[in-house]
C-alpha cells in the first residue's frame, strides 16, 4: 500500500457499523490524491476513547461525473474529501 500525491485511488467499498469519516457517496469510487491533509489521530479510535498512532489523511479529488452518473454540471467539476489512508487502495 503506497499512496502519495498523484496516486489514483479507489475508496474501499465497505459498510461497517460504528463511527467513521468516509461518506457513503464516495465509497467504491475512484479519485486521485492531490495532497496530504496531514497525519491525524484515527477518528475511528478517537470516537471510542482510543487513540493509536497518527494516520495519513489524504486529500482526494473526485470528478462529479464519477460520483453521479446523471451529473448535470460542467464535466470538469470536482469534489475534494479528506480521507484516511486505510480507506484507500491504489488502482492501476
Amino acid at each position: 500500500m503506497s499512496v502519495s500525491v498523484g496516486t489514483p485511488v479507489r475508496v474501499l467499498q465497505m459498510d461497517p457499523p460504528g463511527h467513521h469519516r468516509t461518506p457513503r457517496f464516495v465509497r467504491g469510487k475512484e479519485g486521485v490524491v492531490i495532497g496530504l491533509a496531514g497525519r491525524m489521530p484515527d477518528a475511528e479510535r478517537l470516537a471510542y476513547g482510543g487513540r493509536g498512532p497518527d494516520q495519513p489523511v489524504w486529500r482526494v479529488r473526485f470528478r462529479q461525473t464519477t460520483l453521479w452518473p446523471d451529473y448535470a454540471g460542467d464535466p470538469r467539476d470536482t469534489v475534494v474529501l479528506d480521507l484516511y489512508e486505510h480507506w484507500l487502495e491504489p488502482r492501476r
Partner: peptide, 11 residues
Amino acid sequence: FTLDEMRRTIE
C-alpha cells in the same frame, strides 16, 4: 471528550 466521541454519540 474528543470531537469524534461527540460525533459518534450524536450519530
